[in-house]
Amino acid sequence: MITLSEYFMTILITCMIVNLGLALYGVFFKPNLIKKIIALTILGDTANTFALIIGYRMWVAGVPSRPPVFTEWRSNNPLLLLVFTKTAVDPLPQALVLTAIVIGLAVTLFLVFLTLQAWKIYRSVDMRDIKRLKG
């Protein structure tokens, strides 16, 4: 038998992978630009979730793992720092995700403005109406 945490982790990872496939499908096969952009943000969020899963630390003996913030810093106690180091989750994927979120946001923002401009010119956000170029 698997434990409850393993079961939930399996569900989480399965959902993430299916989500990834659906987002890719949306980006490539939906003709509507807004839907494409939404699929793109879903893809980005899925990637970020994946990064967070990679950096997670399972609970030790029922004690929840901590966020990577050393709240007892005022005490100047090396022992507390050791406990922190042994129970906190991996901060690096979180930092990477922060960067990736901002970058994803920036790209989405620019694509939205591009779509707005396309709408001003073509009066449509459907790729089938916009196709003027041969490719």
Partner: peptide, 20 residues
């Protein structure tokens, strides 16, 4: 790729030296 009760060496370095 699936979390365990440990983190990577690099992560421990970050956690230890963030406020040291």
């Amino acid at each position: 790729l699936v979390p365990t009760t440990n983190v990577r060496t690099l992560a421990e370095i970050y956690l230890k030296y963030t406020y040291y």
